[in-house]
Design a protein around this nucleic acid. Sequence first.
RNA 1: GGCUGCGUAGCUCAACUGGAUAGAGCACUUGACUACGAAUCAAGAGGUUUCAGGUUCGAAUCCUGACGCGGUCACCA
Length: 611
Amino acid sequence: MQQLPDLLTAGVRSGLQTLYQLDAEAVDVTLQSTRKEFAGEFTVVTFPLTRLARKKPEEIGQELGEYLKGQLDEVADFNVIKGFLNLVIADRYWIDFLLQQAQEERFGQAPRTEERVVVEFSSPNTNKPLHLGHVRNILLGWSTSQLLDAAGYDVKRVQIINDRGIAICKSMLAWQRFGEGKTPTQAGMKPDHFVGKFYVRFEEEFQREYTAWQEEQFTKSGGKEGMGSEAHWKEYRNTYFNEFSGLGRAAKAMLRAWEEGDPDVVALWKKMNGWVYEGFDETYRRLGVTFDKLYYESDTYLLGKDMAEAGLEKGVFYKKEDGSVFVDLTDAKLDQKAILRSDGTSLYITQDLGTARLRYDDFGARRMVYTVGDEQNYHFQVLFEILKRLGEPYAEGLYHLSYGMVDLPTGKMKSREGTVVDADDLMDEVIQEAYNSSLERDATSELSEDERREIIRKIGMAALKFQIIKVGPQKRMTFDPKESVDLQGQTGPYVQNAYVRTRAVWRKAVSPELAAAADYRELEPTERELISQLYAYPGLVQDAAANYDPSVVAMYCYELAKALHKFWHDVSILSAETDAAVAFRLSLCRAVGNVLKSGMGLLGIEMPERM
RNA sequence: GGCUGCGUAGCUCAACUGGAUAGAGCACUUGACUACGAAUCAAGAGGUUUCAGGUUCGAAUCCUGACGCGGUCACCA
């Protein structure tokens, strides 16, 4: 069956041809959904047509409306307000749509293709546990991967684990010095938190050392005066770490030892990373995400040198006198960028070049999505530009799923100031709040304790996930932990509640005669609203996937849930006037329930059957 | 400073990519459970879309400038 927007656009074109002898193909028809306060579901904007038809917008609307009503069975009525022609779709069309397409199991999902896409997300460091920033990354990456799956792609989910570098050495060193040989189990801690504790310990010890050193400098030069401002010392911190700090020296020595393959250091590194992975696995499990393949930076950090060579041969890169390799991107409004150091060793960008190629070799994907914070926008511009110039086969399909930082109401999260919101704590908190809230209700009191706990977990997680996903990815967001435990209003539990209602009415319905639904004739306003929203679902999912934007799906689910709640309030379902109405409304509930479950599923949010 | 992103109700966010009277939720005020589930519904109040110009039938959206807040400018990752 032809889709309404196409059908209406074609109708408008032929109307313009018939009424005004316009070259239909040349006309841009503006079709949008009708605003709530007016009657109708689709609106044609006639302003742009005035010059071509040489008539007033109202006249065009009137004439075009009459033409469409006469020509198309689907158009039952219309009204014209200024330059807007609102089209009312026939009840018959909506009823048939609801009873047929909207009941299909895979409603909203595109047919599967062979085309493959790799989605990277999470990509943590292994020196401390996951925090709120990771949570946004993970939820975005996961839901985007689900969207691409619904759009028919064969999706591979990957993460690159930053398991090497100075940060993990800091944790290792602190554990060596202050850990007393204890394991997470002995300390009774979640293992990634255990490792994180030593990272914090290192920073504390370092700060102490740095402060003492400053005092010493003051004493030597006979006073604080002229020794620089607080800002200066803050900035100098790095220099101190690199040049004067004993702890800094030890950490860097450890990094060198690791790179040289020192067996003791490598063993320690393996042990502590193992703890972290154990902890991460637990967090991923609770978040409900999985990966198809993990890449470890310790395996990939030397990659990309061959691509540097290839780039030199192709003339894309050039070699400086000191032996370093550069690429000149100034003609693309970017800068010159180093690809290899003068000693021939690789850099961050080199590694990313190699990793992109590695993934292509692994999966044959011509599309790759990188879920990485917007502070790396420039890096990815450069990376993608280079890959294009190298003529990589997947270069046109690269996308940086960039997202804004998560702030707290008190400002930025600062690990050094201990204001970082831990992912595990956050989940505990929202689930606890859902528990408190459920105590005030008795809808689940007849269930077993296990069943109730499972429902409460779903509610808490829905509140958290929805709160984060509903914000557009690009936007920097403020996250208030207090708001995340809200269970009312524009929230995940609100949507879940709508779903639960659609299920409850089916549990109450005894042997319903569904066949009678086809005899239903006239739609109530809330029913039209629900059906036209259902109608938009498949297109919305495809758009969301094309734009890598799960937030529109979240807002859609909210709007649909809202329409369901209103419908629920306005009309009777099981005690409706006629058998046809009962059957029809039951079918409507089922279709809405399915779409809510499907849409929220794309966001990684589970739906309870009761709550 | 160069480049770049953002600025919408007290707060958190929308606005179908240039369309109608800029919409939701939270918080605040008020009303609705003997009803298929009130984690709900209905109503009220809340705005010069940071400011000043411009483009056009029409601007929160595009252009110019100012102000404010981020990010980024390593042979670090």
